[in-house]
Design a protein around this nucleic acid. Structure first.
Lengths: 208, 208
DNA sequence: GGGTATACTGTTCATTTGAACAGTTTATGA
DNA sequence: TCATAAACTGTTCAAATGAACAGTATACCC
């Protein structure tokens, strides 16, 4: 079932090398050309067989979409750099590395999510979220554009500063519950810019 | 010369993440779609600018041939797998992956530590450490053999089970303060096996 | 012998895609 | 004020590409 024929291993190896060297998958015609096939259907057949055996994955109808399936992938760690901001000034984070204070890298499997360019991190300042067990200095990973659920912790823009709040869904409306006493208990969510929904939290031992 | 505009950095970041997540570059139309451009020329302009500034390379006339130029290419991060245990039965964790329930991977720079074979992780069960803002389901990263400081959270072996406690240094002696009411408030540290000192905590959004 | 998998040739078609052309708008510096 | 760059809209074209269809030949298993 899983046994690859010698030819299939050659094809797989070529795809693997092409991915590594050129950082893009070969097209079917390039595979055919490399092996001297006069028809690209030969390459397509092999790719289909490798897919059937589970070692290759493709995104249908997309050019150069071949990739090695996870279990056979050489421990390809899906780790994404997430920009870490002190504060997010405007409506949506820029993902500018220069402005980011740093980067955190988290393994995807742990988060069971797919960080996109809209994932970012904030360092928590103050104890305003201590009611939700988030401490000063904690790093909060957020995703912009994620649909928040009741009770989720979100970052909202207040006074040109990113502030963490709890989202409350009540009577079909969404409110933001502030743990910070400087602001009213409930704010209609529509009045504020929701910058992101918290998807993870990272706390480090104090270095002092 | 090399200064990227904020928009260009966004584009670059999107390409970088697309490359990493899908192991293929986005097409110009995908870039345009992601940023809401109604014309793909906008995306093409940005890509051209990034090429001119030397951070992107392409293979002309090839689909999805974008790649990050060498100097800006993502540096290899030092990432260490830390075994995740449900509980540590014996005096010291074996670091045997077979017995681990899973692995978490964390970037070293973030933790500013040197994970060795003595670093491990535990999933917290119950709310016994809620007084220190550690919740049920949190993952605690610990290091064995680290000299604990006053107030550090440590894992101790009680009733053949790993339990988190707060270390208290008082009158030259070390005690373990249990947050769990089933055990006395203070236990002389010498009576227990300290399995590790907490160096980090990871909390994930609930999937339910 | 019949069925099936492998390993191809040869061709056509519809999409995907990069590239190019012709504009507009705004900001910035000379 | 002019020049330039950035950041777009809108359109067209040709090449690159995946997918499908119709075959051929060989080997292997039941």
């Amino acid at each position: 079932m899983n046994a690859l024929t010698s030819r299939q291993q050659q094809i797989l190896e070529f795809i693997r090398q092409h991915l590594e060297l050129e950082s893009m998958a070969p097209s079917l015609r390039e595979i055919a050309a490399h092996f001297g096939f006069r028809s690209m259907t030969a390459a397509a057949d092999h790719v289909r067989a490798l897919q059937r055996k589970g070692v290759l994955e493709t995104h249908p109808h997309r050019a150069r979409s071949l990739r090695i399936a996870r279990p056979w992938s050489p421990r390809r760690r899906q780790i994404v750099d997430i920009p870490l901001y002190g504060a997010i000034p405007a409506g949506f984070p820029d993902s500018r590395r220069q402005e980011a204070q740093g980067c955190i890298s988290i393994d995807l499997e742990n988060l069971s999510l797919h960080p996109g360019p809209r994932t970012f991190a904030l360092e928590v300042k103050g104890d305003s979220m201590i009611g939700r067990h988030i401490l000063d200095g904690d790093i909060v990973v957020l995703e912009h554009g994620l649909t928040p659920r009741n009770g989720d912790i979100v970052a909202a823009l207040i006074d040109n500063e990113s502030t963490l709040k709890t989202l409350v869904l009540e009577r079909g409306k969404s409110w933001l519950r502030a743990e910070n006493p400087r602001y009213p208990q409930l704010i209609p969510a529509a009045e504020l810019v929701i910058q992101g929904v918290m998807i993870a939290l990272l706390r480090r031992r104090r270095n002092s």
